[in-house]
Design a protein around this nucleic acid. Structure first.
Lengths: 110, 110
DNA sequence: ATCCTCCTATCGAATGACGATAGGAGCATA
DNA sequence: TATGCTCCTATCGTCATTCGATAGGAGGAT
C-alpha cells in the first residue's frame, strides 16, 4: 500500500478511537494505549495523529471532553463518546464491513 | 470514516489494481472496470484517481505499459504487472491481512 | 457535419497521518 | 535546589493520495 509512513489505514483512526473509548472515559494517551491493545499491538497511534484526531472528532460532535487528573496525577483531558459518536460508530462499523468484504472478495478472485 | 469524498480507503487502490490486472493486459479504463467487478461493485475508481495511480505504479516499477488498440478501436495504454509488481502484490496482500485482522479484533472487543 | 462514446491526462483542493518539536508539571534522587 | 525522568497535551510543516473538474483527440453512427 502507499502507506509508506503510516502504520494506519487513512480513515480508520476515528473508528478505532470511537471503539476504544467504548462507554468509558479516557484521556488522550490512554485512548492511544487502548487502540493499541484492542488491535493486539498492530496499530500504534502517534501523538501527532492522536490529538488532532481527538480535536477533530470533538469538533464533529462525536466526543465530549473535560479536564481531570490522570492516574499519575497529571492534568489530562478526558473524552467520552456522545450519542452522536455512538451513532457514528455504527455508521463507520458498517462502512468498514462493506469495505473489508469487498477487498476480501477481490483478493479471492481468480 | 473520514472518507467523506472518497469511496476508496486510502492506500488500497494499488493493491486492487495489482490484483485486477492479474496475469493479463488491460488498459486504464479496463482496469477501472475490473476493480469494480472484483469488488462486486463496491469500488468505482474515478479517472482522477486511476490514471495518476497507474503512472505512479509504473514509476515504481510494478507495472509496464505499451500503446495498443482497445476493443473499440481507440488508442489505449495497456498495462501488465512486472515481476516487481507481483512481489508488491504479495507484500500488500499480507499487509492488508494484518490490518483487517487487527480491526476485526478491535471491533469484537467488549 | 454533428454528436456520442471511449480513452488518456492533468490541475487544484481537501483530507489525514506523520515526524519533529515544544512546554508544563509531578516525582524521585541527590 | 537542581537535575532529570516520565506523563500529558499541543501544533506546525510535510507528504501521499483521492477526488472533482476539465481538457482534448479520435472512432463510429446518424
Amino acid at each position: 500500500m502507499g502507506r509508506n509512513q503510516t502504520n494506519l489505514v487513512q480513515g480508520t483512526l476515528d473508528l478505532l478511537i470511537l471503539k476504544a473509548i467504548g462507554d468509558g472515559e479516557f484521556h488522550g494517551l490512554g485512548i492511544g494505549r487502548r487502540v493499541e491493545q484492542i488491535t493486539r499491538g498492530t496499530f500504534k497511534v502517534r501523538p501527532g495523529s492522536l490529538f488532532p484526531a481527538l480535536h477533530r472528532m470533538e469538533e464533529a460532535g462525536w466526543l465530549a471532553s473535560f479536564w481531570g487528573d490522570s492516574e499519575n496525577h497529571r492534568r489530562a483531558r478526558y473524552y467520552r463518546r456522545t450519542r452522536e459518536g455512538e451513532r457514528q460508530l455504527g455508521v463507520e462499523t458498517e462502512q468498514w464491513t462493506t469495505i473489508s468484504r469487498a477487498i476480501a472478495s477481490a483478493l479471492k478472485a481468480n
